Amino acid sequence: MKKFFNKECLSVSIVASTFFLVTVTVAPHALAHDAAAQRIKQLEQSLQAIQAELQKIKAETAQSAQKVKNIEQTTNQTAQKVNTIEQTNAVLEERLVPDISQMAQKDRMLFFRGGFAHMMNHRNGVTIQSQVLPIGAQDRADRNGWYIGAGLDWNLTNDVWGILPNTSIFAELMFEYKEFGHDVEGNGAVGNVPSMLAGGGLNPIHVTVNQFTLAASPKVKFFKGSKLRPWIIPAGLAIHVLSPPSESITYIQPGVQFGAGLDYHLWKNFYIGIDGRYQLTAGNVDGINLSGMTAGGYLGIGF
């Protein structure tokens, strides 16, 4: 029994020793395997983190690239707009430069006229030559005389409303005084002191034969920007006031005015010019035809 017990003890000892040796031998390898697995797991996690960071950086880079592309497109559009604006400004400058140079010549003018006047027909009237009461002195004025006047040019357009470049349309308001005689002998009926109808002797008074004209006309001036500018009046309205009145006591007669002339820019805002005008009235009105012409010069002041 004792022998058997000793054998059992020996067997247990051998098994225990063997287990201890196996444990001592295998345990370090198992521990090392677990540490390597843990390390691998950590490396995988690090790689995943790095990959996620790379994806994030890649996405941010793509967004930045898109932003840069948008900025480039915006810059190109802005550059195109700037080029368009510069081209527009260049065109406007080309159009404005002549206008600026032409602004030195004022677009409005006050002018003062004077010169020679001529009537196409002799005048008669209530106090001069009379066909109603042909008594006493039957004098009449000469058909030639002189005139003075003034007027205003007001610019409406510098290119005939886009039709003709460098051609201006002005509205002209003009008035003038014409005189054809101041010592015409009055007739015996009402131009004599006392009247011969009352038994007086021949004692004619001196009568002034004159005429006042008020006219409104379109005026076409050529060569805008030039110092020398010819112009024409194609047709305008003229109202004539005559003195002495006609034998039927008519003293106002309408008509049409035509004209042509030439402006010269003399110095600063001062101009000189010559003009000729023709006043046409519609036949005889109560025995008087006031058709006539004037020719002379003028001094203008631009403003």
Results as ranks from 00 to 15, higher is better:
259 G>Y: 02
135 I>D: 01
290 L>G: 02
252 I>C: 04
31 L>H: 11
115 G>E: 03
66 Q>I: 15
230 P>S: 00
166 N>P: 08
89 N>P: 04
27 A>M: 15
171 A>N: 05
138 Q>S: 00
197 L>G: 08
145 G>M: 00
96 L>I: 03
2 K>P: 10
189 A>V: 08
138 Q>N: 02
99 D>L: 14
207 V>T: 08
244 P>L: 00
55 Q>R: 14
223 F>L: 13
187 N>R: 04
170 F>P: 05
143 R>C: 06
71 I>Y: 14
229 R>A: 08
83 N>C: 09
85 I>A: 15
50 I>M: 15
264 Y>N: 06
127 T>Q: 13
177 Y>V: 07
248 S>D: 13
268 K>A: 06
186 G>P: 04
148 I>V: 12
30 A>V: 13
289 N>R: 00
63 Q>K: 11
78 T>P: 10
218 P>T: 04
115 G>F: 06
297 G>E: 01
117 A>F: 12
110 L>D: 00
290 L>C: 04
121 N>W: 13
217 S>F: 05
159 D>E: 05
10 L>K: 12
282 A>M: 09
127 T>F: 15
204 P>N: 02
287 G>T: 03
185 E>M: 07
63 Q>P: 04
273 G>D: 01
251 Y>W: 02
40 I>M: 11
14 I>N: 09
39 R>Q: 11
18 T>A: 09
244 P>R: 00
79 A>V: 11
49 A>R: 15
144 N>C: 12
133 L>M: 14
65 A>S: 10
240 H>L: 02
36 A>H: 14
168 S>T: 07
17 S>T: 15
132 V>W: 11
90 A>P: 06
4 F>D: 10
108 R>W: 15
250 T>N: 05
210 N>T: 01
263 D>M: 05
227 K>L: 06
259 G>D: 02
200 G>P: 08
301 I>K: 03
16 A>F: 09
108 R>N: 14
234 P>A: 01
80 Q>V: 07
107 D>P: 10
97 V>Q: 14
293 M>H: 13
80 Q>D: 07
199 G>E: 03
139 D>R: 00
36 A>P: 09
133 L>P: 05
231 W>A: 04
211 Q>V: 00
69 K>V: 14
157 T>S: 15
11 S>A: 10
22 V>I: 08
219 K>A: 01
173 L>H: 11
